[in-house]
Amino acid sequence: MANEVLLDVRNLKTYFYTTKGVVKAVDNVSVKLNKGEVLGLAGESGCGKSTLAYSIIRLVPPPGRIVSGEIYFNGENILKYSDEEFRRKIRWKGISMVFQGAMNALNPVYTVGDQIAEVIMLHEGLTKKEAYTRVYKLLALVGIDPRRAYSYPHELSGGMKQRVMIAMALALNPPLVIADEPTTALDVVVQAQIMNLLKRLQRELKISIILITHDLSLIAEIADKVAIMYAGKIVEYGTAEQIFYNPKHPYTQGLLSSIPRLRGELKKLEWIPGVPPDLIKPPPGCRFAPRCKFRFEKCDSEPPVTEIEPGHYVACWLHVKS
């Protein structure tokens, strides 16, 4: 795992062409992920983090469209693939996804075993019987009694449904799994169990994970690299230690000091005044400038991405050396 790049997203733009105008949900985003690493993608609702994920697995719902950019997966530009080619070669076999809201992502009229088996049968042409032997293994892997394969989703608890979703994502042994808010709507105890499961699977199967969440505490639990997104752009990127111990972008700093903590000293919570911009008409220049307490003249033009220490990138004029 000598820092081999698995996924390399370059200058990706995904826009939604709505009747009110073009929503620039992902606007010129570049991000890299090494083999066997976990990337935490954090940001508030509407910042484009889920759209970035959907772009990578090419499931952007209309009227959204990938406008430009490149996505290299194992060295190949998968944006060049036709839809059919992508479906056969990449989706689920190369990159799979654990969708937000496991409660509703499963089909209520099929048993969970059938739903997992379907993936295997479709992609590998196995018979149902052959597929089921793998279904049992997958369920055991995520900590569910294999006999539960014959259960319908309503017979399972929220935590178990989420485990089924994870089993389904692992069905074809993909090197990369994208987990989009895998624990929202789950209680803290179940959340901790799911996070443990992801950690264990990541180590045992040596897979890469992109974890998308608004909760920085969850990212700290598992991520090696962290990207902070704001209004369609990545504003800061670095190792978990760099981001959590030495945040440089005012937005990252604001986010971190607004998290209520359970342990340690009871410091006054901070907040970021204002609201995120409308992505149809984002402010010119730095998009965070209207809410930023360090704003100065330069912020009217777009800040370049600067490497301030090895592997730690910030898009902020405060850190640009003239």
């Binding site: 935590g159 803290v188 105890v189 959340q191 901790a192 700290a220 991520a223």
Partner: peptide
């Protein structure tokens, strides 16, 4: 409950969070 709550600190990353509770 308290054990289950994650902290925004990456130093816990290496270990699994042991939550002393069974079942649902």
């Amino acid at each position: 409950l308290i054990e289950a709550i994650p902290e925004p600190d990456p130093k816990n990353r290496a270990k699994l969070r042991q939550v002393p509770i069974k079942g649902e």
